[in-house]
């Protein structure tokens, strides 16, 4: 899921100080799980805005805020509230925010959250990053663990000199990605491969921005 963190409320209120009427959009997927864009968070944002003398014309938690067409349909019943609004605050990830930017050309849109990374929730509201969306997966060669993500230097061929007792030089809380890969490949009986294969420099062209993908087959091709 996309891990988000609430931006400082004071900064947000400062940024929206020239607006009067607000509409709040949350998201029931990642943002709700992160505690940044579910019903309770929308409620407290509404209260905070009202405490500043602002008016909230409506609030809505989208099912999947990054799904543009679905969200557009879901928001249709809120047309009246939206018409009265001059500013939308989106309480989901950057993608959800961009949905509102696309759907409401004439409204100011602000994001209540910072989007941090694609991560896994390991315990309630504890998240860590396991995939960097680099565009070309290499974990077949690294025992299933991604060194692009798990190693701060993205090293592809073994631990650097900064590995201290199996932990990373940049933080004693981070286990060295290459020690983890080594241990896992040992368990999988793939040490030979670790020793013999030098992983080539990565082709970063697969992560050239802005990325887009058309996954569906065009109708004319189906028949």
């Amino acid at each position: 899921m996309i891990i988000t963190k609430k931006r400082d409320l004071k900064d947000l209120l400062e940024n929206v100080k020239n607006y009067r009427n607000f509409f709040l959009i949350g998201c029931s997927e990642c943002a709700a799980l992160c505690g940044t864009g579910g019903e309770p968070e929308l409620k407290s944002m509404k209260e905070a805005l009202e405490a500043e003398g602002k008016s909230v014309t409506g609030t809505f938690v989208a099912k999947t805020g990054c799904q543009v067409l679905g969200t557009k349909v879901e928001l249709k019943p809120f047309k009246e509230a939206m018409d009265k609004t001059d500013c939308i605050i989106v309480m989901s990830c950057g993608a959800g925010t961009q949905t509102a930017v696309e759907l409401y050309e004439d409204k100011a849109v602000f994001s209540a959250n910072d989007s941090l990374f694609l991560g896994n929730m390991t315990r309630l509201q504890i998240f860590d990053e396991r995939c960097s969306l680099c565009g070309k997966c290499i974990i077949d060669q690294t025992g299933g663990i991604c060194p692009i993500t798990a190693c701060p230097k993205g090293i592809l061929n073994g631990p650097c000199g900064g590995c201290k007792d199996g932990y990373c030089e940049i933080s004693p809380d981070i286990k060295c990605a290459w020690v983890r890969i080594y241990e896992r490949m040992k368990k999988l009986d793939k040490l030979q491969e670790f020793c013999e294969v030098t992983i080539e420099a990565k082709d970063w062209s697969a992560s050239q921005k802005p990325r887009a993908l058309t996954a569906r087959k065009e109708k004319k091709n189906e028949f």
Binding site: P152, K153, G154, I155, L156, N157, G158, C160, G162, E169, I170, T198, E200, A201, K202, W204
Partner: peptide
């Protein structure tokens, strides 16, 4: 060498590059 991470230095907000690493640089 791959090089010490920027977090060790005096420009902690710098974007670390690491496009390649020590083994690949040797190649």
């Amino acid at each position: 060498m791959t090089g010490d991470h920027v977090s060790a230095g005096d420009h902690k907000g710098a974007k670390p590059v690491y496009d390649v690493e020590s083994v690949q640089l040797l190649k």
